[in-house]
Write a protein that binds this DNA or RNA. Structure first.
Lengths: 193, 193
DNA sequence: TCCATGTCCAACCCATTGGTTGGGAATGAG
DNA sequence: CTCATTCCCAACCAATGGGTTGGACATGGA
């Protein structure tokens, strides 16, 4: 077998994504990452340097994935409800990112990884939304930033606050993901109509 | 000085609230709780048994505080925007609870502390909202549970995802708490009108 | 063939941390 | 005064976990 350092690195990164998403930066165990990846622990330090740097790498990797997977075109900006639904679907099939984001929010009070790029990324989304607002296809009763914030908050909370969902929704036993998605889309559409 | 065991217990609990809110259940250090409280570490084990049990005590304590501090009367249910604003104010002056809630959501996937009481508590709120909906003073376009979920999610995210706020809102530099509160109230009113 | 590099393994180092223990001092009820 | 209780202090224990090291084998290019 040829040495495939890129593959080794990727295996470690994938395992780290799962580990960090599951247990958070504090609870994550370096040894467990290595075991998950089927790679020796020391490799982590060679490729990433430290647990913290590994976390940063994990976060950046997941950020790219999400940005690539759920775009927001000018036309789509007219229906943010649909956009929220697609973000929901992404989180549902890739439950790692949103948890990483939540942990980052709780732990990193000052600066976060790739803050500049991410700010730019969000600025693009906001520009798209603003354009739709000027365009008249989207309400301008609420600022574009506030709108995006609301969409992200509403979408993420289904995954980051599952205990709330359980305690709020259980009475009617209708808390399947389809229902959650529908509720999200409805709420966002109502917010933007 | 008389022995005041209730005070000692309370000092420990208060210190634990801060420690757990700041660092989370994993990052919290028992020794630091003791130091914060100015009480010896061993007392914690006498009064609470273990770190985990201390966390449960902390959570229950904060739950009671919030429930007592921000009620929702039948009349107030007509304006959920105002209610959201008051919850925001509570979180702003008592930033512990919402962080504890977020950590709980990430760590405790199955059961959480005092789940029954909390479910009941939320059921009351939902009943109030439902009454307002039947009453006609509140839209019934969205279910009561979904509405409460949205309100909580929108309110909490300002505190649990500060990095988002920074990256989304910074362009206009208008991200003071007053603005956040106003945006929240607007959004919720728009959602419920 | 030689050799730099990737990898595994296993042990190791050391700081941290949850939790315990024993001794002794303060307190206040009886 | 006596004594059970509360408390502090300091040391201690066992386990965990981040990070390192050294030795050995595989690989493939020069």
């Amino acid at each position: 077998m040829a040495w495939d350092t890129a593959r080794t690195r990727q295996l470690l990164l994938d395992a780290a994504v799962e580990e960090f998403a599951e247990h958070g930066p504090e609870g994550a165990r370096v040894a467990r990452v290595a075991t998950r990846a089927g790679i020796n622990k020391e490799r982590i330090y060679q490729y990433f340097g430290s647990k913290e740097k590994l976390f940063v790498a994990v976060l950046e990797s997941e950020l790219q994935k999400l940005a690539a997977a759920v775009p927001l075109t000018d036309e789509q900006a007219a229906d943010l409800g649909d956009y929220a639904g697609r973000v929901f679907d992404y989180h549902h099939t890739h439950p790692h990112f949103v948890r990483l984001l939540a942990w980052e929010g709780l732990l990193c009070q000052d600066r976060v990884a790739a803050e500049c790029e991410r700010t730019d990324h969000y600025a693009e989304k906001i520009a798209t939304v603003t354009a739709a607002q000027r365009n008249g296809t989207l309400t301008d009763a609420v600022g574009a930033g506030e709108l995006m914030h609301a969409v992200i908050a509403l979408t993420a909370s289904w995954f980051t606050l599952p205990q709330l969902t359980r305690m709020l929704m259980s009475p009617a036993a209708r808390s399947g993901p389809e229902h959650q998605r529908a509720a999200l889309v409805t709420v966002v559409r109502r917010l933007t109509s």
